[in-house]
Structure formats: C-alpha cells, structure tokens
C-alpha cells in the first residue's frame, strides 16, 4: 500500500486575487473537515475508542455487574498459566499455518492450471465453481458441513469405510481429526479467493516477457522461476498477508461445527475471547486475550510494510 500524496502547488496569488483565493482555501478546508466528519465520529466511537478502552479494560477485573477492580497486569499473568488460553493460541497458529500453506500452494497451482488457453465456457464454469463457496456465509457452510460430517448420516465417513478404511474417523468428534476437518472445510470455502486474485495477478504479467525468454531459450521451469514468480510476488505477498490475518481471527466454523471441542482441540483465540467475555462475563480477561489478536495482527501488518521492500519485485 502506497500512500500517494498530491499536494497541489498553489498558484502564485496576485495582490488583487489574494483575498478571494484565501476565501476559497478556507471554504475548501471547511468542506474537507465537513466531509470527514461522519468517518471521524465513527472512527472515534467504534474503532479508536474501543481500542483504547480494551487496553484499559485489560488491566481490570470486571464482570459487568459489580464495579471494576484495577489489577494491573494480572490478566496477562493469568493468560500465561491458563491452559485454555495456551491451547487457543497454539490452535490458532496451527490453523493459520495450514491455512496459509494450503491457500498459497494449491491456490497457485489451480490459478496456473486455469490460466491456460481453454474454451471460454469452461473457463467461466471453473471460475464460478471454485469461487462460489466464498460467497456463501460461514453460517450456511458450517451447517452444511456439520451435517456432511455427522456421525450418524455423514457420507464422507461412510464412503471412506466403503473404500476399506474401516477405522475412518468421525471427523468433528475425533480429537485428532477435528482440527484437520475444520482446516479442510475452511480450505474448501476460501480457496476461491486466493485462486481468483492469483489468476488476476498471472494475467497481469506482460506476454512479451515470456516471448523474450522463449527466444533466449528458457524452458517452462526457468520461465516460471524467473518470470512468473518475481512478477507475481506482490500478489503472492498480499495473498499471504490477507490469508494470515483472516485465519488468525477464525471463529465461525469452530463455533458452529465443534464449539471449540473436542476437549479444546479446536478452540481459537477469538472463540476464547467470546466464551470468556460473553459467556463468563470476564470482561477484563477477555480484553487481555483480544489484545493478543491485535498485537499479532499489528506485527504482521507492519512486517508486511517493511518486508515487501525486500521480497517483492517492483518494476
């Protein structure tokens, strides 16, 4: 993200026009502040205010009914000893790692495969099918999949057994398989996004580069490593960051399909924030947990701004 600044060079104001010019400038400034007012109010009330409020609240113990009690950093000390919080942080990183790997590698392969000469209807059909689950709400997706993976009538376990895997797991209930199952459902739902943006990135690579490389005798693999990857690096980088940030806040599939179970195996940080804040009403502790999410996302975002200068090829 580059912030373009386009400060106008003010025209040399003649003596006579000076008064009129400054009136215009004042009017322009007034319009500027006026146009920003709705955004500024909403920003203060619903983003900046709550962020500061959350930091303050993380230093308190408060159940929303009695008066809040200042306890310093005790919420953060508790976080280090809370087996649920530790499980949630570990699960969130595991989920995020697999989410990033699965979205980027198969996502790129899929984009490369579709980015070939093919009949237009086929191209349209593939894009539509791969992208469609992305448009369906998590609520609907998680409900459908919780039935597909149901212990009684789920057809995936049934077919696995028919294929000879006698001890095929009941995915959402098996402690070792619940997380892989959620990762797989998330992959199915959101791969379309990575696919589409990588495909758009591939199509933005100038054809001449490939032609020139071919003339120089570069093979398919060389062209891939020396043209496709560098030219695609801004998109790849963006996809990595977006997938990371999205995965780190994951909530719905666990909340709806597994409730964080079995035995906290799919509990994520945001789920833990939800349970702590809105089930147990420990607002201070929940705020401390939420800050973990904020700090990690902030670090990744700032790293993105820094690292993209080194990793990403810019023309």
């Amino acid at each position: 993200m580059t912030v373009r600044s386009d400060i106008e060079t003010t025209a040399p104001a003649g003596e006579a026009r000076h008064g009129r010019a400054s009136t215009l400038r004042r009017r322009e400034a007034r319009a500027g502040y006026l146009f920003l007012t709705p955004t500024a109010i909403l920003f203060l009330v619903f983003i900046a205010g709550p962020l500061v409020g959350g930091i303050v609240l993380s230093l308190y113990s408060w159940d929303m009914f009695s008066s809040p009690e200042y306890i310093g950093i005790r919420n953060f000390e508790r976080l280090m000893d809370d087996p649920q919080a530790i499980a949630a942080i570990r699960n969130t990183f595991v989920f995020t790692f697999w989410s990033v790997v699965l979205h980027l590698v198969p996502g790129l392969l899929l984009a490369l495969a579709v980015n070939r000469a093919m009949a237009r209807p086929l191209d349209y059909f593939l894009r539509t099918s791969y992208f469609f689950p992305m448009l369906v709400s998590w609520a609907a997706v998680a409900l459908i999949w919780s039935y597909i993976l149901d212990p009684n009538f789920g057809f995936i376990t049934y077919y696995l057994k028919r294929l000879g895997f006698e001890d095929a797991p009941v995915f959402l209930i098996d402690p070792d398989w619940a997380m892989p199952a959620v990762i797989a459902v998330d992959f199915w739902k959101t791969i379309g996004f990575t696919f589409i943006i990588l495909l758009a990135g591939l199509q933005g690579i100038p054809t001449q580069l490939y032609e020139a490389a071919s003339v120089d005798g570069a093979g398919t693999l060389r062209r891939f490593w020396n043209i496709t990857i560098p030219m695609l690096s801004p998109t790849l980088f963006f996809a990595t960051v977006i997938t990371f940030i999205g995965a780190f806040q994951i909530f719905e599939p666990m909340y709806i399909m597994t409730r964080g179970g079995p035995g906290d195996r799919t509990l994520t940080i945001v789920m833990h924030v939800y349970e702590t804040g809105f089930r147990r009403f420990e607002m201070g502790y929940a705020s401390a947990l939420a800050l973990v999410v904020f700090v990690v996302i902030m670090i990744v975002t700032l790293l993105q701004v820094r690292l993209s200068r080194y990793w990403v090829f810019h023309e």
Binding site: V3, A29, A40, P50, L51, I245, G277, A286, V293
Partner: peptide, 29 residues
Amino acid sequence: LQFPGRDLLFIILLSALMVPQQVTVIPTF
C-alpha cells in the same frame, strides 16, 4: 481537498485496518 492535517488524518485512518472487530467487540459491547 486541501486542508491542514489531511495526510496525517489519512494515515491514522489507514492504521485502523490493523484493528479487527474481534478486538473492539468487548468495549463496544
């Protein structure tokens, strides 16, 4: 539009992209 503090305000607003709803939900509640 030209007005004092414009670019600074823009940067401050952009930094809100780092603040997900999951972080602000408790104070907002």
